[in-house]
Structure formats: structure tokens, C-alpha cells
């Protein structure tokens, strides 16, 4: 699972309410994608390209545990989300809907918006092609990696329900 794309960088403590505003949660996911993070950077949803990489600070995705927040990010074409650390429901939701999420303390200091990043999701290796800096994200639990590879929770739910767990 490799990705290469432009970086869009956001700050700390961003709640899901800011990723998708509450008055938009009943739109279709594709419609919602047009408004992702609208109050923080109106250019993001307009100009983001398929494969781009979203970087954010601490406690990303706090507040309501709505899975539509990562779904809408995924629908913008973002390939990977890299954060200092994520809120736990957001973390869980990303894997369940098949959006790779890496936690990498220090990432926000080493990358800027517009930098080109190269990411290997499985090994957690991140390379900033624009300034040559490299980082290693925290490893992803094998159980979650399996979920991600299957495309999300729904695909592996029957297997999980049989009681398989590590």
C-alpha cells in the first residue's frame, strides 16, 4: 500500500464537526466531499486531487464519532491521512471504512502544505520528497491492516463474527 501525493496540512484538535458540518451530514457522501473542512480551508475541497495526502496535528477527528467524516475525506480522493495522533473513534472509523490512517508524532513539523510526500502504509515509512526528511509512523495493528486490505469492516465482518481475533 503505497501512496504519493501533495500534502494538505491542518492544525490541532480538529473535531468531526469541522470535517463535515452537522448541517451537511444528511447529504450523499459525494456531495459532502465538496465541503470537507470548509471552515478551515475552503480551497481544500475545491483543489484537492486524487492521491493527495492530508496531514493534521493532535487529536484529529475528536467530538462526534460519525463515520461520515472519514468517508467524506476518502471521497475527496485523499489517499492517506497522517496525524500527530487521532481521536479514537476517528481512528477506528478510518480503518472500518477503508481509509489508511497513520499516527506519526512530529510529522507536522517536518512537512508543509504543498510538499510532495511518499508513504508506505504497511511499513509506516514516510518520505518528504520536497525537503528530503523522512519519518516512521507507528505500526498498524495486524488486525486493522487486514481490515484495510479487505477494504473495510463490512468485507470481513462474517469472518470476525465467527470469533476470529488475534
Amino acid at each position: 500500500m503505497n501512496a504519493e501525493g501533495r500534502c494538505w496540512k491542518f492544525g490541532d484538535n480538529i473535531p468531526t464537526d469541522q470535517i463535515v458540518r452537522s448541517d451537511r451530514v444528511l447529504l450523499t457522501i459525494d456531495e459532502m466531499a465538496k465541503y470537507v473542512l470548509e471552515n478551515l480551508n475552503p480551497d481544500f475541497a475545491k483543489n484537492v486531487q486524487s492521491g493527495d495526502i492530508l496531514v493534521a496535528g493532535k487529536h484529529f477527528g475528536q467530538s462526534s464519532g460519525r463515520a461520515v467524516a472519514p468517508k467524506a475525506i476518502k471521497a475527496t480522493g485523499v489517499s492517506v491521512v497522517i496525524v500527530e495522533y487521532a481521536a479514537r473513534l476517528f481512528y477506528r472509523n478510518c480503518f472500518e471504512i477503508g481509509l489508511p490512517l497513520l499516527e506519526c508524532p512530529g510529522i507536522t513539523e517536518g512537512v508543509g502544505s504543498g510538499d510532495m510526500l511518499q508513504v508506505d502504509v504497511e511499513t509506516g515509512k514516510i518520505l518528504n520528497l520536497s525537503n528530503g526528511k523522512s519519518f516512521t509512523a507507528k505500526p498498524i495493528d495486524p488486525f486493522l491492516m487486514e481490515m484495510l486490505k479487505a477494504g473495510g469492516l463490512i468485507a470481513i465482518a462474517p469472518k470476525i463474527a465467527e470469533g476470529r481475533s488475534s
Binding site: L89, R92, E96, I154, A157
Partner: peptide
Amino acid sequence: CGLGNNSHAATVLPYGKAW
């Protein structure tokens, strides 16, 4: 504990379980 909609839809409703 709070879970996401996909946990509820994919494992809790059909199987009464969650990870």
C-alpha cells in the same frame, strides 16, 4: 464505548458482536 456506524451496521446488528 462509542463505535462508528460501520461497526454497528456490519457486526452489531447482524451478529450481536463487535471488535
